[in-house]
Design a protein around this nucleic acid. Structure first.
Lengths: 345, 345
DNA sequence: GTGAAAGCGCTAACAC
DNA sequence: GTGTTAGCGCTTTCAC
């Protein structure tokens, strides 16, 4: 059976197609009795507007793009991170009848600006959501703004004073994690920093320093190692930190993947976690509960942030009023098995 | 600057819009010199066809949907599995200029057929790719076929004799895994079965039995536990298998998530892997390399399967010739750290 | 409040 | 080989 069109509905309801259009799009200026008549006809015919025709006439696609870093090519498999973001963006899209187009990309490409331009023009996106670490990268943001397509950003570490930006309290949450470790008696608390391109994780290092300061512990740069967010780099940093005799009693990795790497090394070296070494991460990706012992971490409400960012974007697309200030969603401590009292030294 | 339309190109090239259309769509019946003239005009104006207009006129959307089980709601976080499939489908879509719409859903919903129907009609999909375990479920397959939208299925466990189906050698790969374990001296090899709705994993149990038989080992049902593919269930089954004095020397979980659960339990009980217990999984999701010790497993080429299935689907959409027989992509053993010689008993 | 007319930018069908 | 003519099914504009 051929799909019903707006003409069929108009004929059945005894009105013009314009009136059907008004009802279908919930526009004002329709008498209630008319609205009901049309709604009935729509239901009877099981009418669904043809999106292509709608798009052509209204110059909107009702498509939103989600751009994120394609880590799979680099064997940095943080799939849980991506899935969470997708899920948040998707739920906001569904609520407003937009469809979601995902677009993994590698920001390391020289041609990334061109790629984004082609994406937007080919897929006729109405708006774009940017996941970390892309949400921080000026060349990418500029390329998008040049096309004129509205943009929302999830958890950028900087350039935050804009509309359609959702952030979290990375810094204070990390200070809080240090407080927690100190409360367990730890004094020698090591830190593993993240990938330099990922600005948000830079804030985490500041938070670590805040925490030390609050507890009057001097920053010991010997206890700070530079990772790149991957498990492998977590292992490398852990090897360095655990090589000496007097190793730290706690290691705070600024994401969960690296913390998982630390745990692998602890196992390999026969260092019991948490009895001899506390290990904590950040993000609370699924992996945090899959390793043994399960990771104490800070839960970053990625899904909620992604959803909120997408909602803001859609409001912008619809020219609905928008709060000017950036939105914040709180991260909070999750204690599991990998942290415990500091061993006597 | 307003985007160039087909009329602009036609004017600049001095031809009719139909000729431009022919060139843009790589249709035959255009003289080479004309083709070049038009191609130049397209390049000069940076012309990109308006997809909405194309869709409306040709009654195609150039959109492909990917349907998979939304595990996140059930805290069965097998994100790596989903990402792999997305990635394969996406690469096939890109190669043929289709866009991908992802659609997580929960097959446990009573209204799943209606949901699928609405999805197809709302998002005007040209075709649909079904990931496991949905690729096995008759009510879902029927609902899609009723809409008339072409369908491709990834790794179904049954009803395989159709076009647009890509499978792997689950069964023989599992027999092979048993052979490998036997070659290490293992005799008491336990097995953890998967979720009953997931047909493909049922084949894995058959393969396990094949492997035992090939090695003249009797099936001991005490060594077989029923899981549901989740880490938690892997833990539960492992507790049961490792409770007794005379526990098995190897545990073969029919997916990696459950194998990760087994490893967690082994750690908790102080059973050294692989010295005292070999643990092996199936799938080779990213998690396999993230746990300690890294999992010996069978690599299921999910991404390749997803890509192949999508290619078949697109060929069907384009009415291009299609091999009749189902396609097979081989799975193969990956030895890592979690398997070793059987301990002396 | 409602409707008539005019496109949106393409492709399909057919003529030349 | 190439062009002409009609739409595809909506929204927009503006008249009433």
């Amino acid at each position: 059976m051929a799909r019903a069109t707006i003409d069929d509905v108009a004929r059945l309801a005894g009105v013009s197609i314009k009136t059907v259009s008004r009802v279908a799009n919930q526009e004002p200026n329709v008498r209630d009795s008319t609205r009901v008549k049309v709604a009935n006809a729509i239901a009877t015919l099981d009418y669904k507007p043809n999106q292509s025709a709608r798009s052509l006439a209204s110059r909107q696609s009702f498509l939103i793009g989600l751009l994120y870093d394609d880590q799979s090519k680099y064997e940095i498999p943080s799939a849980g991170y991506v899935i969470n973001i997708q899920s948040g963006v998707m739920s906001a899209c569904k609520a407003r009848n937009y469809d979601l187009l995902i677009h993994p990309c590698t920001y390391r490409n020289k041609d990334i600006s061109k790629e984004i331009d082609e994406l937007i023009r080919h897929s006729r996106l109405d708006g774009l959501v940017l996941a970390p670490p892309l949400s921080d990268m000026l060349p990418i943001i500029d390329a998008i703004e040049e096309t004129g397509v509205p943009l929302a950003r999830i958890a950028p570490g900087s350039n935050v004073n804009q509309q359609c930006v959702v952030t979290t309290n990375d810094r204070s949450a990390c200070a809080n994690m240090v407080n927690y470790l100190v409360s367990l008696g730890h004094k020698r608390i090591a830190f593993i920093t993240g990938h330099p391109d990922h600005k948000a994780v830079a804030n985490r290092y500041l938070g670590y320093q805040d925490g030390l300061q609050e507890n009057a512990i001097a920053l010991d740069t010997e206890l700070v190692q530079s990772g790149d967010n991957s498990i492998k780099s977590g292992e490398k940093c852990a090897e360095a930190l655990l090589a000496g005799k007097q190793h730290p009693t706690a290691i705070f990795a600024c994401n969960d993947d690296m913390a998982a790497g630390v745990i692998r090394v602890a196992h390999r070296r026969g260092i019991r976690v948490p009895e001899k070494l506390s290990v904590v991460g950040f993000d609370d990706i699924p992996l945090a509960q899959q390793v043994f012992p399960a990771l104490t971490t800070t839960r970053q409400p990625l899904k909620a942030m992604a959803k909120k960012a997408t909602e803001l974007l859609i409001r912008k697309l619809r020219a609905e009023p928008l709060e000017a200030a950036p939105t914040m969603v709180e991260s909070s401590l999750v204690v599991r098995e990998s942290s415990g009292k500091s061993p006597a030294i």
